[in-house]
């Protein structure tokens, strides 16, 4: 069953058309990645799906058409995004950040929130150590883990991640991807936006390549990983980026 189906999505900011006629689908249990260079429109795609920016086209989630959508409404039904800049509650404790991720579930008086907190702590033991610390005082990598942990507390049916590796040291990036792999193995459905094409394609079942607002390729993760065009334009870029810092 497809959890998410996006058809003909377009996002424009004034005269700039950031995304043009994009269509993609994510089936239950899949890990999908959307790769592309800086400014390709990856974040705009996610924002368009969540209703954070004006977008045309249709979005079906769990078989329903979402016409008027807001991120708070979607988070309550399990469509949760880990945003590019993490957007933590910096002056609040780590544990409060995590609990707030489950806010809609508290509102519904759902059970199992405490158990999920234990589970997130077992995924990220660092967060357990720092549970009383203020979120804003942690390192970039720890903050990214907290952002993912907070999203997991919503029990996402589909987890959107916007460049979780951005600005992190290689060792931390590996750690983050190890966790994403673990989530995938546990059956969490993932839509991962990345510039780090190599790691993203290794993780993903399928991938889409976005360039200047349009999809230019799609295929199985392993196929894209060895596609000469992808190797030339994306897997090359990464080494250049690393050299440039």
């Amino acid at each position: 069953m497809n959890i998410l189906e996006v058809e003909n999505l377009s996002v424009r900011y004034g005269a700039v058309e950031a995304v043009r006629g994009l269509s993609l689908r994510v089936a239950e249990g899949e890990a999908i990645t959307l790769i592309g260079p800086n400014g390709a429109g990856k974040s705009s795609t996610l924002k368009g799906i969540l209703g954070l920016v004006q977008a045309s086209g249709t979005v079906h989630y769990l078989g329903e058409t979402l016409s008027r959508r807001t991120p708070e409404m979607l988070a309550a039904v399990g469509l949760v995004m880990v945003p590019e800049k993490r957007e933590l509650f910096a002056s609040m404790a780590v544990e409060d950040n995590l609990l707030l991720g489950a806010f809609p579930r508290f509102q519904r008086r759902e059970r199992g929130i405490r158990e999920d907190l234990e589970w997130v702590y077992s995924l990220f033991p660092r967060l357990l150590e720092r549970r009383r610390q203020l979120a804003g005082t942690m390192s970039g990598g720890e903050q990214q883990m907290l952002a993912i942990g907070r999203a997991l507390m919503a029990r996402p049916k589909l987890l959107l991640l916007d460049e979780p590796s951005l600005g992190l040291a290689p060792l931390i990036v590996q750690e983050i991807f190890r966790i994403l792999g673990e989530l995938k193995a546990r059956g969490v459905t993932i839509l991962l936006v990345e510039q780090n094409a190599r790691m993203a394609l290794k993780l993903a079942d399928r991938g889409y390549v976005l360039e200047a607002g349009e999809l230019v390729m799609e295929g199985r993760g392993s196929e894209l990983l060895y596609d000469p065009r992808v190797i030339e334009s994306y897997l090359g870029i990464r080494t250049r980026e690393a050299a440039g810092g």
Partner: peptide, 21 residues
Amino acid sequence: IYGKALRACAVNRYGARLSGI
């Protein structure tokens, strides 16, 4: 948790929206 959600809105509105607040 409701009081914390109010604080969360004050600290980071965007983050709060993404968390379903």
